[in-house]
Simulated scan of single mutants.
Amino acid sequence: MYKYGFQNYFEADFTAFYPEVMKGEHWINVYLNFDLSAETKLPGDLYDPSALVVFDREGEVQDFIVHDEGVDCEYKFTDREKEKMLSYIKEHDLI
């Protein structure tokens, strides 16, 4: 993850995901809480990160949003983190 402006860059090592899927008329929202490895050190301004992955009704990814304590924050996911989340979602047929 990294903060806007590419500050506080780190690569999160996910060890488990806990999904919640909400299907709407136009979007499929996959909320992912996750556990991080002991080696993953969060920056001081990121307390309880989670993810919202937004898909359209055809199953195409529209956005990956970092939440902190349940709300949008200034962090973004790295490409590697996005790949891991998308792989998990597809592997478990969540959409």
Rank of each mutant, 00 (worst) to 15 (best):
M1W: 01
G44F: 07
G24W: 06
N29P: 01
H67L: 15
K23Q: 13
M1K: 03
D56A: 03
N29G: 09
F17L: 04
S37C: 07
E39P: 00
L36I: 12
K84Y: 00
D48Y: 02
H67N: 05
D56W: 02
Y88Q: 13
V54D: 05
E20W: 02
I95E: 11
F14Y: 15
D93P: 00
D93L: 12
K82W: 03
D35W: 00
H67I: 00
V61Q: 10
F77N: 09
G59R: 11
K3R: 15
Q7R: 12
L46Y: 03
T40W: 04
S87A: 14
L46C: 10
E91N: 14
F77Q: 10
D35V: 02
E81Y: 05
E69R: 11
E58V: 08
L52T: 04
V61A: 07
H92R: 13
M1L: 07
Y4G: 09
K41W: 04
M22L: 13
H26G: 05
V61K: 11
Y4S: 14
C73M: 13
H92S: 07
H67P: 00
R57W: 04
D79S: 12
D45M: 00
V54Y: 07
F10S: 08
L46P: 03
A38K: 13
D79E: 14
Y88W: 10
Y31W: 09
Y47K: 06
D79A: 12
I65S: 05
A38F: 03
D45P: 04
K90A: 11
F10P: 03
D13Q: 13
A12R: 00
D68C: 04
K3L: 12
F10M: 02
R57N: 12
V21G: 12
E91S: 14
E25N: 12
F55S: 08
E25I: 08
L86W: 10
Y18T: 03
E20Q: 13
A38V: 11
S37H: 06
D72Y: 12
V71D: 13
Y31P: 06
E60D: 12
I95Q: 09
I65D: 06
N33L: 03
D63C: 01
